[in-house]
């Protein structure tokens, strides 16, 4: 098809029509075929049949990297900025250092509610009790145990830090600890100063894991009757004591760990 079109164009070029048509007509030279200026096309190469190759193994798409945050500062709330409520739940140990030594360390728990203004928290700790059993085995077997109970309120300062943020607590407390009076476990009440220190580890936007030790400088109010101290366990006669009307309450302290919801 391409060749035929080119040949027709060559004929028209060789016999142009004169304007006016008055020139003598000379015999036209024999028409020679115009030289072809078009090279014959190369032979059509049939495309090779498609070779079916096994599909390469599909590799999992690389994980989509989260887009980096824009360089501009997002209007998010900085950690511990603003103010809000605080709720907490703690488990731990409680004991009295020194004192009459009648009752040993006990395990227990505490709840707390508070209100935070930036890095200051006013908190109220309630339901805090640690079940202290008598240190003498026979007394403990007879169920001679009672709670070291603490109800406290005070201020907490959260210091800035890296993953560990130190905290200090100071406040007041009402305490209760067990005494053995006339073979019965009765409470000895006290009030005093609460001092604490610990660390908090953020484990979420609003949740902090805390570890804290607190000590209480208490003034005790003794119950009526002499309290049993210095037990001596005699298998034959029972357990004997040195009674006293001024039992030494010692220095109560607690070591707790827990979770705080900081809103």
């Amino acid at each position: 098809m391409t060749l035929a079109l080119v040949a027709a164009a060559g004929v028209a070029h060789a016999q142009p029509a004169p304007p006016g048509g008055s020139l003598p007509i000379e015999p036209a030279p024999p028409i020679e075929p115009a030289p072809s200026v078009v090279e014959p096309p190369p032979p059509v190469v049939e495309p090779p049949p498609p070779v079916v190759e096994p599909a390469p193994p599909v590799e999992p798409a690389p994980p989509v990297e989260p887009a980096p945050p824009p360089p501009t500062v997002a209007p998010t709330r900085p950690l511990l900025a603003g103010r809000g409520a605080v709720f907490g739940l703690e488990l731990g140990l409680g004991a009295a250092l020194g004192g009459d030594g009648m009752f040993g360390a006990g395990t227990g728990k505490a709840f707390l509610v508070g209100y935070r203004v930036e890095r200051w928290v006013f908190e109220f700790r309630f339901g805090e009790s640690y079940d202290q059993a008598a240190q003498a085995a026979r007394l403990a077997a007879a169920g001679a145990r009672g709670p070291l109970s603490v109800t406290s309120g005070g201020f907490r300062r959260i210091f800035s830090g890296g993953r560990l943020s130190p905290e200090l607590f100071v406040g007041g407390a009402r305490l209760e600890r067990p005494l053995l009076v006339d073979a019965k476990v009765v409470p000895q009440h006290g009030v005093g100063l609460a001092l604490g220190g610990g660390v908090a580890i953020p484990i979420g936007p609003t949740v902090r894991w805390t570890v804290e030790a607190r000590g209480y400088l208490a003034r005790w109010d003794n119950p009526p009757g002499p309290a049993s101290t210095a037990p001596v366990d005699d298998p034959g006669t029972g357990v004997t004591f040195t009674p006293t009307v001024e039992p030494d309450g010692g220095l109560p302290f607690t070591l707790t760990t827990g979770l705080k919801l900081v809103l």
Binding site: A141, A142, G143, L180, D182, A183, G238, V239, T240, P243
Partner: peptide
């Protein structure tokens, strides 16, 4: 069974 203490502040028996 429940064990309690009986006695005084000077001596108790289970």
């Amino acid at each position: 069974t429940r064990t309690t203490l009986a006695g005084t502040s000077a001596a108790v028996v289970p």
